Amino acid sequence: MNSYFKYILPLFITLNLCFTYAQSDFILKDDVSDKIKFDFASNLIIIPLEINGVTLSFVLDSSVSKPILFNLSQGDSLDLRNTETFYLHGLGADGRLKALKSSYNRIKVGDAVSTNKDVYVVFDSSINFTPRLGIVIHGIIGYDIFKDFVVEINYNSKYLRLHKSESYKPKSSKRWKSLPLNIYKKKPYVNAKVKIKNSETDVKLLIDTRSSDALWLFEDLENGITPIKELFFDDYLGKGLSGSVYGKRSKVKSFQLSDFILNDVNVAFPDSSTINRAKLYKDRSGSLGGGILKRFNFFFRL
């Protein structure tokens, strides 16, 4: 398996689904932003981001539809205005979390700037990436960046580039593979296959760059998506925006994304109470996380 990973590491995948917007929230003067270097810790991408002139560290989260700030050690200097109470939905607890919505904020990512952006602030001190990563993390951002640009993620060299969608021209090469995306409620999904026992099963997975795990699957007895009895253990899977998530850890015999096949992939099966709240998209089978995504370099085109 290691030799196969070495072979696929240089490959690029372009994930496509085209939309037309009246205007972009972020403005990029040039066709391409300079390299945005990122830190990579526990399979998470951590980028520098400015809010109202203050530089912060945010996790790039392809599964989040709103910029969320949850470490307010610099809150007084952020000059957050026009606030109102708001409720966010996520994994864990009762599936919702009280937050503060602030409007008309200036956000800068690389060379891209938005001067009219909503930011959502949560005050739950238990939502904190810093102790686990050893890096101060102030929040998460995702869809707002992905919707306005072709986002190049180079895991090998640890950088992002933002490309204007209208001027981006994909390179034609056998080293590239283009895959379709499905967007549901501002979240990207991709089709894949898993083999748990002796048969393959089609799955639709949320692309989740905020997940450190390789793969999450929702148990589905009818379609054979369940951990093998002899090969799982109960475990704490992590913390969602609304609380802790528990489940089972196991392995699948193989995971296939387009033509790429990985063997003996680690998988987590979150418990059923979590699934019922998270499965807003009825066709969703689970999540594709950083443990697999880091094997590739990507261009996301929403």
Rank of each mutant, 00 (worst) to 15 (best):
L181S: 04
I228E: 11
D202G: 00
T209F: 02
F40E: 13
G90H: 01
L15P: 04
S212N: 01
D144Y: 03
S63M: 00
F12A: 04
K282C: 02
L56K: 08
Y168G: 11
I13E: 13
R175V: 02
T226R: 09
I140P: 08
K294I: 01
L179P: 04
R132V: 12
R249I: 00
I68K: 03
S211D: 00
L88M: 07
L11S: 13
L60A: 05
V119I: 15
D148Y: 04
K174P: 08
S114P: 11
I135M: 11
L206H: 04
A112M: 05
N128Q: 09
S157L: 13
N52K: 06
F12P: 01
P131N: 05
K29Y: 10
N266I: 04
V190Y: 03
I46P: 10
Q256A: 04
L49P: 06
G134C: 07
L80N: 14
D111I: 14
Y189K: 02
G110R: 14
S73A: 00
A41L: 13
S212Q: 06
T130A: 15
K197F: 01
P67G: 01
K195F: 02
P10F: 14
K117T: 15
K185N: 09
E50P: 10
Y104F: 15
L215S: 07
I127H: 03
S33F: 08
E230M: 05
K186M: 09
R249N: 08
Y143Q: 02
F38P: 13
G289D: 06
D283E: 15
F12M: 07
F129C: 03
L237V: 02
L237N: 05
D94R: 12
L88P: 04
T55E: 12
N266S: 12
D213Q: 03
I8K: 06
L78I: 01
V59H: 08
S285C: 14
V64E: 00
A99M: 09
W216V: 01
S258M: 06
F40K: 13
I228D: 09
I141V: 12
S63W: 00
G247I: 03
Y143P: 05
V119Q: 11
L88Q: 01
P10A: 12
T55G: 02
I183N: 09
G110M: 15
D148C: 04
F233P: 02
P227F: 03
K229I: 07
Y184K: 07
V119Y: 09
E152K: 13
S273Y: 07
A268C: 12
K187W: 05
F260Y: 02
F300N: 05
K294T: 08
Y189W: 03
L78V: 04
F58C: 11
A214D: 02
D235G: 02
I36Q: 03
F26T: 13
L162M: 10
K294P: 08
V113I: 15
D31H: 10
F255A: 04
V59S: 10
V59Y: 05
I183H: 07
G289S: 00
I68M: 02
I13D: 11
I107N: 12
V203E: 06
K147G: 03
E152C: 07
K229G: 00
I36L: 10
F26H: 13
D148M: 08
L72N: 14
H89E: 12
T115P: 02
G134S: 07
F300S: 04
L49T: 13
